[in-house]
Design a protein around this nucleic acid. Structure first.
Length: 452
RNA sequence: GGAGGGGUGGCUGAGCGGUUGAAAGCGGCGGUCUUGAAAACCGUUGUGGGGGUGACUCCACCCAGGGUUCGAAUCCCUGCCCCUCCGCCA
């Protein structure tokens, strides 16, 4: 851990995405960040105050100053070395002695090596600092502490009136013998379940229905690796800060993805896209794996919170000026799935305190669950602006313009399959314990009713 | 798992210690020619960063990371990826 971040320093703070740098791998990318910090130190301080958070910003700035000074010195020395070395080459070809110059350059080379080593240490610290700073919220995001300060944007559908007591999905599922929590726990452990018969079929039907609907809207279907390396996890922001949320393999070290966002966004890591390629729309089904550390006692029963679940994801790479419109249409695409399934939901705009680390603006879509008599998150649609693009170095080039820019990345669940299944069981349950299959799924299910 | 061979600019492909950021060809862009197009010819054509009002100039990058050297695309080490053959295997 780096010194700036250790001790009592609180890391939650707001800082413009433009200073979030990619990692050390991309040499030279820190200059822009240093300049930004120098010129915006007051802006940053007030942003921190507003959040009631602190970080050693001045320590960071001082470190940056050192870094720039050393970098300049090293560059000058390199220039000298290049010029003199060429001279040495000339002399040698003419058969003349160059011993004095050679020994001079030996000291220069030593000094360069010395500076480089110091620089490496400093860069490790600054990079670590930057990687642990969250994205800055968009201006349209309400300020707030937690989920209680979120604002409801809209509602769709009317929760059904039951003339009997609506059951929880686990009661429905166990009666129908389509989900087996006991066996899931035996095979693996808590928060794992076995889907059986029409339950397994429904899981598969939802996956296909969602992918078919998404691809019909121009999202290209992707089936990515579900084990990824450290660089990919860093690119989308899961690492280094949220390692405790991830499952990982030991030898070789890979990470199990917590969402398809990771492999799909990283498809274009370290790439420069052509302007004519944008926007890029992807949709992907994958299993997702989450440790759910710190959620002991929450949703212990049922399918709501599992260590492994299935999800269909929507991912976009867009031009900066389009990203907020794209967020609206992305959210609409996710909502459309619920509408076609006839599931009542509401859409919520997350406040500053409830948003994810990498996001600049997030809509959560919450589906109505009669068993719990409340709305539960079933999709989360976010605009990351250039936060992920900086970390993952995803750029594009405008036609006829010099240089490159970072793309904006977005993603959203379209949708979480397990929770959709829960919503169907609870919303479509009948007094006799059977469950009506929503119209749009019947061709996938080969049935109209789930019964025992 | 065993034995070899490779990774160079948008692509093909030279270079294997010193005017090589990189030959040549193809492609792209601009121009000449043409009624227009093709062909031909001429020119141009990577990314990031620093400095300068500017002409311009400096640094880094030939898979990645270390090392040797006054000097590395070129030599050494490690990793990653690709190809061929053998073995094994869903």
């Amino acid at each position: 851990m780096n010194e700036l971040l250790s001790g009592p320093v609180i890391l939650k703070l707001i800082m413009p995405a433009s200073i979030i740098s990619a990692t050390l791998r991309f040499k030279g990318d820190h200059m822009l960040d240093a300049r930004f910090v120098r010129e915006n130190i007051d802006v940053l301080k007030s942003a921190l105050g507003k959040r009631g958070a602190t970080a050693d910003l001045s320590g960071f700035a001082a470190l940056e100053e050192d870094r720039l000074r050393l970098l300049k010195e090293a560059e000058e020395l390199r220039n000298k070395r290049n010029v003199v070395s060429e001279e040495i080459g000339k002399l040698k070809r003419q058969g003349q002695s160059a011993d004095q110059l050679v020994s001079d350059m030996k000291t220069v080379a030593d000094r360069i090596k010395e500076i480089d080593e110091t620089l490496r240490g400093i860069e490790e610290q600054t990079s670590n600092f930057l990687l642990n700073i969250p994205n800055i919220p968009h201006g349209s995001v309400p300020e707030g502490k937690d989920e209680n300060d979120n604002t409801e944007t809209r509602r769709w559908g009317t929760p059904r009136e039951f003339d009997f007591t609506a059951l929880n999905h686990w009661d429905i599922a166990e009666a129908l013998d389509i989900i087996d929590f006991e066996r899931g726990a035996k095979i693996t452990g808590a928060r794992f379940a076995v889907m059986k018969g029409m339950g397994a079929r429904l899981e598969r039907a939802l996956m296909n229905f969602m992918l078919d609907l998404n691809t019909s809207k121009g999202f290209k279907e992707i089936f990515p690796p579900i084990l990824v390396n450290r660089e990919s996890m860093t690119g989308t922001g899961q690492l280094p800060k949220f390692a405790e949320e991830l499952f990982r393999t030991v030898d070789p070290e890979f990470y199990l993805i917590p969402t398809a966002e990771v492999p799909v966004t990283n498809i274009h890591r370290n790439e420069i896209l052509g302007e004519d390629q944008l926007p890029v729309y992807y949709t992907a089904y994958t299993p997702c794996f989450r440790r759910e550390a710190g959620s002991h006692g929450k949703d212990v029963r049922g399918l709501i919170r599992q260590h492994q679940f299935n999800k269909v994801e929507l991912v976009k790479f867009v031009k900066p000026e389009d990203s907020y419109n794209e967020l609206e249409s992305l959210t609409a695409a996710a909502e459309d799935i619920l509408q076609k399934l006839g599931l009542p939901y509401r859409t919520v705009l997350l406040c500053t305190g409830d948003m994810g680390f990498s996001s600049a603006k997030t809509y959560d879509i919450e589906v109505w669950l009669p068993g719990q008599q409340r709305y539960r998150e079933i999709s989360s649609c976010s605009n990351f602006e250039d936060f992920q693009a900086r970390r993952a170095n995803i750029r594009f080039k405008r036609e006829g313009k010099k240089g490159t820019e970072f793309v904006h990345t977005l993603n959203g669940s379209g949708l979480a399959i397990g929770r959709t299944l829960v919503a169907i069981l609870e919303n479509y349950q009948q007094k006799d314990g059977t469950v009506v299959i929503p119209e749009v799924l019947r061709s996938y299910m080969g049935a109209e009713l789930i019964k025992n």
